[in-house]
């Protein structure tokens, strides 16, 4: 059995009468990049705050890196880097001084290497040139980078990142995603909360979906995609013969429109389909195998749209 970096059972948080998080059983395997997906207000941040011991669960329990929280917080959290609900720093201190302050608060950090580690972290997120600038003069993207740098001050086994690409331009987004991939390749487990489906598709190995405080789905990305149905799309100016060929091959749900034919692939290899089409003399202008995107998967998994509600 794989070890779990984050594990919860029945974790719940009630604010007043409303359950912000309703009995979720998280299972984040060690070494995975876990996409913690859900619309705004679905309980992601509340969950992350509970995981870090910032708020107390109403019910349920959880473990980080195999140790029970919040009892083991002093032992576990030094190995956990966290970005929670956006960056927050002292506005009148420079980026470098802000990181130095966080490092000074860390009893586990070695003071002798502090200056070097702070600069290395700044360098890793591309902020070294702006190290002496006051935080208040930072753009949103720079602030986000500084918060990421704070998680890199010491080597971490688990990174819990709440919307790390929020506010970044496309270039910054790419850099952060490649940074996360690098960190994961170095052996860290990354729990990445996001509402961007494309982000999950690009870098995650596992997915958990929150919806109105419930964890409505949780699986590896491969499992999710294997359980889904692939389709083919043939572009041609002679759709009728193409339709006939596809039917003869045993494809189902064959549909025809002006210059294309679509069908459900089933267990047939796509190259067999192309071969059959060409042999039948159908002029093929384009052929695509369509894996359903994550959004469709979620609709099929949860029966719900991906809209913000409550």
């Amino acid at each position: 059995m794989t070890q779990l970096a984050v594990e919860s059972s029945g974790l719940s948080k009630r604010f007043g009468r409303q359950f912000a998080v309703n009995g979720i059983d998280l299972a984040v395997p060690q070494g995975s990049v876990y996409g913690f997906l859900g619309p705004n207000g679905s309980g992601k941040t509340t969950t992350i705050r509970m995981l870090l011991g910032l708020i107390q669960p109403t019910a349920g329990s959880h473990r980080l890196l195999g140790e029970g929280m919040p009892v083991a917080a002093g032992r576990v959290l030094p190995k956990v880097g966290a970005l929670v609900e956006g960056p927050a720093f002292h506005p009148y201190l420079s980026g470098r001084h802000n990181l130095a302050r966080l490092d000074a608060a860390d009893r586990w950090a070695d003071p002798r290497s502090a200056a070097r580690r702070v600069d290395a972290a700044l360098d890793r997120v591309g902020l070294l040139a702006a190290a002496t600038k006051r935080y208040r003069a930072y753009s949103l993207g720079m602030r986000q980078r500084l918060a990421l740098a704070a998680t890199l001050l010491t080597p971490r086994e688990l990174l819990i990142l709440d919307e790390p690409t929020n506010g970044l331009d496309p270039q910054g987004t790419r850099e952060v995603r490649s940074l996360i991939t690098t960190l994961a390749a170095d052996g860290a487990t990354v729990m990445l909360s996001t509402h961007l489906l494309s982000e999950v598709e690009q870098i995650c190995t596992h997915v958990g979906v929150m919806h109105q405080g419930n964890l409505v789905a949780q699986a590896s990305l491969r499992e999710l995609q294997a359980g889904s149905v692939q389709g083919v799309q043939v572009l041609t100016d002679q759709p009728e013969p193409a339709q006939r060929v596809l039917r003869e091959l045993g494809l189902t749900d064959v549909q025809i429109s002006r210059d294309q034919v679509t069908a459900t692939l089933g267990s047939l290899a796509p190259e067999k389909v192309v071969d059959a089409l060409v042999h039948a003399g159908v002029p093929v202008r384009g052929f695509t195998v369509q894996a359903p995107d994550l959004e469709e998967l979620f609709v099929s998994l949860t029966g719900k749209g991906f809209n913000i509600n409550g």
Binding site: L52, E85, F89, A105
Partner: peptide
């Protein structure tokens, strides 16, 4: 107010 409290506590500072 600044939000730095959550980061100090998750450093962790007891």
């Amino acid at each position: 107010n600044l939000g730095t409290l959550r980061y100090l506590l998750s450093v962790p500072v007891h």
